[in-house]
């Protein structure tokens, strides 16, 4: 079976790619995609540690991952609604141009 370190490294790579995307891209939707990628990397860690952990029959990691997926879905819905509201107001989804709180 693939060692635990391989899964952890895959998760670290995905997290860093998501962080780089969230920090460097101009479009707000890609920033949100980067955040989703980071959440997914964290979920992979939960599952990997559950599989390699002390007592997997407790199902703690699996249930944490399920709740985390649910929260990520709520976050995606609210985030995209905010982006659509900002787009309607500013006519742009570019995070560099949206720089004032008072429209």
């Amino acid at each position: 079976m693939t060692p635990l370190a391989a899964y952890l490294l895959l998760s670290a790579v995905l997290f860093s790619i998501g962080l780089a995307g969230a920090l460097t891209r101009r479009n707000a939707i890609i920033v949100l995609i980067g955040i989703e990628l980071m959440l997914n990397a964290a979920n992979l860690n939960f599952i990997a540690f559950w599989r390699f952990g002390e007592n997997p029959e407790a199902l703690t990691g699996v249930l944490f991952a399920i709740f985390s997926i649910g929260i990520a879905a709520a976050e995606a819905a609210v985030g995209l609604a905010l982006i659509i509201a900002i787009y309607r107001h500013y006519r742009t989804a570019n995070v560099d141009e949206v720089n004032s709180l008072k429209g």
């Binding site: 790579v13 780089a20 101009r26």
Partner: peptide, 27 residues
Amino acid sequence: QSVFSSSWVWGGLAALAVFATLAWAIQ
């Protein structure tokens, strides 16, 4: 125009630093 924001160098450096720390900890 470019798809990357004006401060992309710092974002990329931060992501690289995070990855280096995580990889070091895992190893």
